[in-house]
Computed example of a mutant assay.
Amino acid sequence: MTALLQLDRVSVEIGGVQLLQDLSLSLERGQILGLVGESGSGKSLTALTALGLLPLIGGRVSAGTISFDGVDIATLGEKGRRALRGRRIGFVTQNPMTALDPVQKIGAQIDIVSRQHLGLDRRSARARTIDLMTQLRIPEAAAVAEAYPHQLSGGMKQRVVIAMALAGDPEMIVADEPTTALDVTVQAQIVQILANLVQKRNLGLMLITHDMGVVAQICDRVAVLYAGRLAEERSVGSVFAAPAHPYTSALINCIPQENMAAGSLTGIRGQVPSASDYPEGCRFHPRCAAADARCRSERPLPHQLQTDGVVACHHPFGGLA
């Protein structure tokens, strides 16, 4: 069966600097793929690559292929990519506070998507908008459609942004940190809404997040990115039961646990390196307690694990593999 989205050894450059290198990922219908990693790992850039938006930020795919439902996105002109975005691929942007036009009413901003991509007239588009808002648990949807963004809470704005992503009846949604600016209770509601949408509509969902707890809650598979490379890509159950890459293990150890003693939460020493100064060998080695001479000099290539998925590490599972 053809994957809905397939990235095959994709490298991306901006201004002559390579920011993603040899990235391979796939997403199936009805599946939630979580992209995790610290800021600067390449998560949002991966989303822009999948959406064909790199030219807008001066970027280009320098190697590899990106296909959606078997069609190479790189072979499409801008008109073809615009027809794909919104209609077949929906995008939930990172910050709901700034994603909406402050001088347009909520309903009009959702209406335009179904009018442009589905060819609906004004009345039909508004009926669809109100139906989507109701499905997303927005109370008094008709009244909210006549409101302006500043009149809504952060959680309501995020629901509106999701409604915009759904208005074109897409087959895939890319959600870039959709819960970042929301409180914990609202985060849980938004996460559950997204999970229900995947189940009911058989969508593919690429979920970009810093929250490993969210990944554990709703994702089917997880891809861990570090400094523009894939560190590990496996099923969620396998990753949390036995992380193969030291970076994945470190991210999981950063999750607060119930009844954790004060001061016992550990962080990851150091920081993600600048794209202009990536280290030789494994890019994580300056922060890895298990790094040896081979890690410092030789790049670990992603290789298939016997159990599930791939890992790019010279000593997976702490050298026990």
Rank of each mutant, 00 (worst) to 15 (best):
E280G: 02
G263V: 12
M212P: 07
G80M: 04
A143V: 15
G154Q: 05
G237M: 08
A188P: 08
P273S: 13
G204T: 06
V12H: 03
P246C: 08
H245Q: 00
E38V: 14
L45E: 02
F240K: 01
I255R: 01
C254H: 07
T209I: 07
E78H: 11
L5N: 03
D220T: 05
S41D: 02
A50N: 01
P273H: 14
I89V: 15
S238V: 02
R123M: 12
A108C: 08
R9G: 02
I252K: 02
I255M: 08
V71Y: 09
H210W: 11
R128A: 01
M133N: 10
S24A: 12
Y278M: 15
A223H: 12
L152T: 03
A63E: 13
T248W: 03
Q271W: 12
T209A: 07
L132H: 06
V236A: 00
A145V: 11
L225W: 01
H314Q: 00
A163S: 12
Q31K: 04
G37N: 03
R287H: 14
G107W: 13
L20M: 01
G270K: 09
A216I: 08
G30T: 01
E280K: 01
M133Y: 12
M206H: 06
L120N: 12
R287N: 10
D69K: 08
P149H: 13
A261E: 14
I32R: 10
G15Q: 09
V174H: 03
E28Q: 15
L23S: 10
G59R: 10
P279F: 05
S114I: 06
A74E: 13
A289M: 12
D111N: 13
P273G: 11
A145F: 04
S264L: 05
V71D: 13
A99K: 04
I218R: 10
I138P: 03
T98C: 05
T134R: 07
P246R: 03
R87K: 15
E232F: 02
S114N: 14
A227R: 00
I106C: 10
R81E: 04
D72E: 15
G64R: 09
V92L: 06
A261N: 04
V214R: 07
Y278G: 11
A244S: 08
R201M: 06
D22Y: 05
K105G: 15
S26I: 03
I57M: 15
T185N: 07
P316K: 02
A50I: 05
S39I: 10
A142G: 06
E177Q: 11
A242Y: 05
K105R: 15
V160S: 06
A50F: 09
Q151I: 12
L203S: 13
V224L: 03
L225T: 00
L56A: 14
T209G: 08
Q158M: 04
T93R: 09
